[in-house]
């Protein structure tokens, strides 16, 4: 269990209305291999900004990232991007491509041209999310939940070392959200991928996360860390009655409430 993704002192500010708005004020966090980390915080605290920096989508102003022993510069290389599987806030599928082609996209971009091999990988990823029979559909023909499953398959297809999810189920209804959380936990359990997920839902965070980190309001730091000592079996069987879970939920709810309401500009 080595630290294989480390952030130290990550800072980020944006220009807005003539003044600099400090969003991230020195984020330190380290992720161990194969663990599931959930990051929570009030809306506007910079959760999405943080994960976008981790994903290599936006550059950081200061601080150090070490991923798999490498420190990525301003522009993250394709080689390093390949090691990250990214699930976006919306499904973010390309609506002109079929489910199959959407999932195949990372393989193509990463220059893997062997058709038979790609097909095997795409079908394996689709099977993992239960969409093997829908490979020929276009996104418009699918429900919101199925589209988000497709985007999880797209993130997994290149066999990344770490899966990063930015509030992946925020736009879905409660029942679909619950189902997809179960699926995600199963996928994490079977693939043994390291996962980082941004969420604003306490139950989701405790259900999935081995650790839950809580961010303060912006300019934000990580202010709380909760270990969730529950096994996979405990998580899937009657979690709602588990005393450890109930105790942690009360604690997490108290922490989240104790954060000030975000500044209104």
């Amino acid at each position: 269990m080595s630290d294989f993704y480390t952030l130290t002192g990550i800072k980020k500010s944006f220009e807005g209305k003539g003044e600099l708005i400090h969003v991230l004020d020195g984020i330190d966090l380290s992720i161990r291999e194969k663990e599931f980390v959930c990051i929570m915080g009030n809306s506007g605290c910079g959760k999405s900004t943080l994960i976008k920096i981790m994903e290599g989508i936006i550059p950081r102003d200061g601080g150090e990232i070490i991923f798999d022993g490498i420190s990525p510069g301003k522009q993250v290389s394709k080689e390093l991007q390949k090691k990250m599987g990214i699930v976006f806030q919306g499904d973010n599928l390309l609506e002109w491509l079929t489910v199959y082609k959407n999932v195949e996209l990372p393989l193509k971009v990463f220059g893997q041209k062997d058709k038979a091999e790609n097909k095997a990988k795409v079908m394996e990823a689709l099977e993992l999310v239960g969409l093997q029979n829908y490979w020929d559909c276009i996104p418009r023909e699918l429900s919101g939940g199925m589209r988000q499953r497709t985007s999880i398959a797209r993130a997994l297809v290149s066999d990344p070392d770490i899966l990063m999810l930015d509030q992946p189920f925020g736009a879905l209804d409660a029942i679909t959200r619950k189902t997809l959380n179960q699926e995600l936990l199963r996928i994490w359990h079977t693939t043994q991928k390291t996962c980082v997920m941004i969420t604003n839902n306490e139950n989701e965070a405790l259900y999935l996360g081995g650790r839950v980190l809580v961010m303060s309001n912006s300019p934000s730091r990580i202010v709380h860390e909760i270990e969730v000592p529950l096994t996979y079996e405990e998580r899937v069987n009657n979690l709602a009655l588990n005393p450890i879970y109930l105790k942690l939920r009360t604690e997490l709810a108290r922490i989240v409430r104790s954060l000030d309401t975000p500044r209104q500009n």
Partner: peptide, 12 residues
Amino acid sequence: EAKKELMRALGC
């Protein structure tokens, strides 16, 4: 913006 982010995330 989301589509641009997808391309950046794939290192395009």
